[in-house]
Simulated assay, not measured.
Amino acid sequence: MKGLILSGGTGTRLRPITFTSAKQLVPVANKPILFYAIETVRAAGITEIGIIVGETKDEVKQAVGDGSRFGVAITYIEQEAPLGLAHAVKIAEPFIQDDTFVMFLGDNLIKDGICGLVDEFKQEKPNCQILLAHVPNPQAFGVAELEDGRIKSLVEKPKEPRSNLALVGVYMFDKNVFEAVNAIKPSRRGELEITDAIQYLVDAGYDVQPHVIEGWWKDTGKLEDMLEANRIMLENIETRIEGTVDKSSVVYGKVIVEAGAKIHGSVVRGPAIIGKSSKILHSYIGPFTSVHDNVTIRSSEVEHSIILAECVIENIGSRIEDSLLGRNVRVHRSEQRPRAYRLMVGDNSDVEVL
């Protein structure tokens, strides 16, 4: 069995962060989301993985490499444009050949993994197995309608959903899916929809089995989803102090302080991670905060946030929370006169002020 991980999307909902970085490489608990996907597939015993890449292919290849660090062999499959999930399957046929495979969306997180689901697929041998989850906003997903436990219909982002069962970003197929992706036509969005391909399999009489998962699953396409994923992953960490914490500082709860990091005159309340060579000086770092490498936080408070590498936060009079700061961002108080907010903000940013 092989794995197919999709990492070719443009990440429009996470702009401006994704103007300069692949959305699958934005870190959750200081680890790129894509790495979680690779580790999840590897944990299910799958060691041959194809990764669909697009315009951010160079960045993805540099981050992942040949896969040896994860114990897998990676094959990169280039998609000329984001033409749909079924298109990604279509161009992966030379890699997959006649094998069964798991398709995993690279910006999805499934806390409990997929080991049991892969075992179930191998034992029962359906032509396709799809994962579903109850969601409060099904119109934002592909939606499945079930009848007597079997799939009746699948619709991509319906205006009037017939159920609240969303397609989780994990699918399992045998070779018959290639018949489906080569038979369907592009949707109104100009994409080959995976829902149409699965509907083709249903209509053609193939065995398509739904599996409703009850555990935690998250599509990390939006800021609030990223922050929730960060919170969930941080809850699982174990305290590890490799950097230095001076006597005037207090660190409690689950906290990781990476090598080279310095905590001075500060309070760090976990769960939280302080990345390599970062400096927390006379500051407060609250729960559910991930501070990446080479960050400086001075005389400021940060809570429930993701701070990417090389950021500087200095002398902020109020607390930063529920925030995602991209790489090399500087947030600081200015004594310049006249007093005013002075902003340099990229496209599609969101700024809230007191």
Results as ranks from 00 to 15, higher is better:
Phe95Asp: 02
Phe95Thr: 05
Leu85Phe: 11
Thr100Val: 14
Phe70Lys: 07
Arg69Asp: 11
Gln97Lys: 15
Val89Cys: 02
Ser68Thr: 10
Ala86Glu: 00
Phe101Gly: 00
Ala63Phe: 12
Thr100Lys: 15
Thr75Tyr: 07
Asp99Ala: 15
Ala92Ser: 08
Asp98Leu: 15
Glu80Lys: 12
Met103Asp: 08
Pro94Trp: 10
Gly65Thr: 04
Ala86Asp: 01
Met103Tyr: 05
Pro82Arg: 05
Ala81Ile: 14
Arg69Asn: 10
Arg69Tyr: 12
Gly71His: 11
Leu83Ser: 07
Ala63Leu: 15
Gln79Asn: 13
Leu85Tyr: 08
Gly67Val: 04
Phe104Thr: 03
Thr75Leu: 05
Ala73Ile: 15
Phe101Cys: 04
Tyr76Glu: 08
Phe104Glu: 04
Ser68Phe: 12
Met103Pro: 01
Glu93Leu: 11
Ala63Ile: 13
Ala92Tyr: 05
Met103Val: 09
Ala81His: 08
Gln79Ser: 14
Ala81Leu: 07
Ala88Val: 14
Phe70Met: 02
Ala92Met: 06
Ala88Arg: 07
Gln62Thr: 11
Phe104Asn: 00
Asp99Phe: 14
Gln79Cys: 10
Asp99Trp: 15
Met103Ala: 05
Glu80Ile: 13
Ile96Asp: 00
Gly71Pro: 01
Ala92Cys: 10
Thr100Gly: 15
Phe101His: 00
Ile74Asn: 02
Phe70Gln: 04
Pro94Met: 07
Phe101Met: 08
Asp66Met: 05
Gly65Gln: 05
Gln62Met: 11
Arg69Gln: 12
Pro82Tyr: 08
Ala63Gln: 15
Thr100Met: 15
Val72Phe: 02
Gln79His: 11
Val102Gln: 00
Asp66Cys: 06
Asp99Met: 13
Gln97Asp: 15
Gly84Arg: 00
Ala63Gly: 14
Ile77Gln: 02
Gln97Phe: 10
Gly71Lys: 10
Thr100Arg: 12
Ala63Val: 13
Ala92Gln: 02
Asp98Ser: 12
Leu85Pro: 04
Phe101Ile: 06
Phe104Trp: 04
Ala86Ile: 03
Ala73Asp: 14
Phe95His: 02
Tyr76Thr: 08
His87Pro: 12
Arg69Val: 03
Asp99Ser: 13
